[in-house]
């Protein structure tokens, strides 16, 4: 009898669970149906107000009263339309009008959303601040950063990005004492937004920065292609860290300005193939008459990467192909021969 009782209990339990699941399923299905119908309404709203919004944003006509949002669905529809405009149309006037519209009608809505208890809503709102350039919310973000409340790493990143988008001078101090443990890519994105002035401030404090930031600064200088920073990069060539030296070489190569070839000659003897390879690459920016002897040496290097780079550097010159042909004809080094062959073969 004992077993039968327990059996009954188990049966009832499973039946209950099943009915619960079915009930949940029905609930979700109903929700999905409601969602579908509200999507249709949003679509309808968009169709109806498309022209008015166009007149306001593009033609600069007065804003129609119909465009003042009343319900959550209106807001969704308008947001959707604004997003499409920001993605597809660029123009000072248009983005100015978008910002003005939001300032007037959605400011409080977004402010409330920033304080939402839901992570996803806060994040979405932070995205919008950058996308729509909502300068009037920067202070709110600033308060969030200063508050005791703990946010997630993604949120902190997005907040910093807001500060970066608006070139806020406070960003630098936040960067020096970050609230989250950011990775290289996150820093790169943030620093990329800095204007030259802010960048100079950072470079002035270079020595006191954490090493992750140091390396990124070197990368970004290369990416931004600012010739004024070449002396700064040249100084880094004497750094103790191999990583730093390689990155500096890379950035100098990206900028493509070799002021003094002597600075780079010590790297020809570097014990690290990465450095030798970078020099082989850099030598492209020097007249062939000067660089050829070095490149010919590098062509015999023990590392495949260095040989390959050296051959490509020679090849990129106007007379490169001829030079390589003559090397190929005269060399008795099998490795040199193979490499030259491959590079010429590429055509």
């Amino acid at each position: 009898m004992m077993i039968e009782n327990k059996l009954l209990l188990l049966l009832i339990g499973i039946l209950l669970l099943m009915s619960l699941l079915i009930a949940l399923f029905i609930y979700i299905i109903i929700q999905r149906m409601l969602e579908t119908s509200s999507l249709a309404k949003v679509e309808q709203y968009m169709k109806k107000h498309n022209v008015q919004l166009y007149l306001y944003l593009i033609e600069g006509k007065e804003l129609s009263k119909d465009l003042i949002p009343h319900t959550g669905l209106d807001i969704r529809a308008i947001e959707e339309m604004l997003v499409r405009y920001t993605k597809n149309i660029s123009g000072e006037d248009v983005s100015f009008r978008i910002t003005a519209y939001i300032e007037r009608y959605l400011q409080e809505h977004y402010r409330k959303q920033l304080k939402s208890s839901k992570w996803s809503i806060r994040i979405n709102t932070l995205y919008k601040i950058s996308d729509f350039r909502l300068y009037f919310l920067v202070n709110d973000v600033f308060e969030m950063l200063n508050s005791q409340k703990k946010y997630s790493k993604q949120e902190y990143f997005q907040m910093y990005k807001v500060l970066a988008t608006f070139e806020s001078p406070i960003l630098i101090s936040f960067l020096l004492h970050p609230k989250a443990d950011f990775g290289e890519m996150e820093y790169k994105k943030l620093l990329y937004y800095l204007n030259q002035q802010q960048f100079e401030i950072l470079i002035d404090q270079y020595e006191s920065l954490p090493s992750i930031l140091k390396n990124i600064i070197i990368d970004i200088v290369g990416m931004k292609n600012v010739v004024e920073f070449v002396p700064f990069l040249e100084k880094r060539l004497n750094d103790d860290s191999l990583e730093t030296r390689i990155r500096a070489l890379k950035s100098i190569d990206q900028i493509g300005l070799i002021r003094e070839i002597d600075l780079y000659l010590p790297f020809l003897q570097s014990p690290y193939w990465e450095e030798r390879m970078m020099v082989a690459k850099l030598l492209v920016h020097v007249p062939m008459s000067e660089s050829l002897p070095y490149l010919q040496d590098l062509l015999k290097d023990s590392s495949w990467w260095v040989r390959s780079r050296a051959a490509q550097s020679i090849h990129s010159n106007k007379k490169g192909k001829e030079i390589l042909e003559s090397i190929k004809a005269t060399t008795n080094d099998r490795f040199v021969f193979d490499m030259v062959q491959e590079v010429i073969g590429k055509g």
Binding site: W119, S120, I121, N124, Y127, D131, K188, K189, Y192
Partner: peptide
């Protein structure tokens, strides 16, 4: 539940930048 309603499109877009 945490990601419920997150704007996936935005978070993807972040990435497509060539530099990274």
């Amino acid at each position: 539940r945490k990601e419920y309603k997150l704007d996936k499109h935005e978070s993807d877009e972040e990435l497509s930048d060539i530099t990274y």
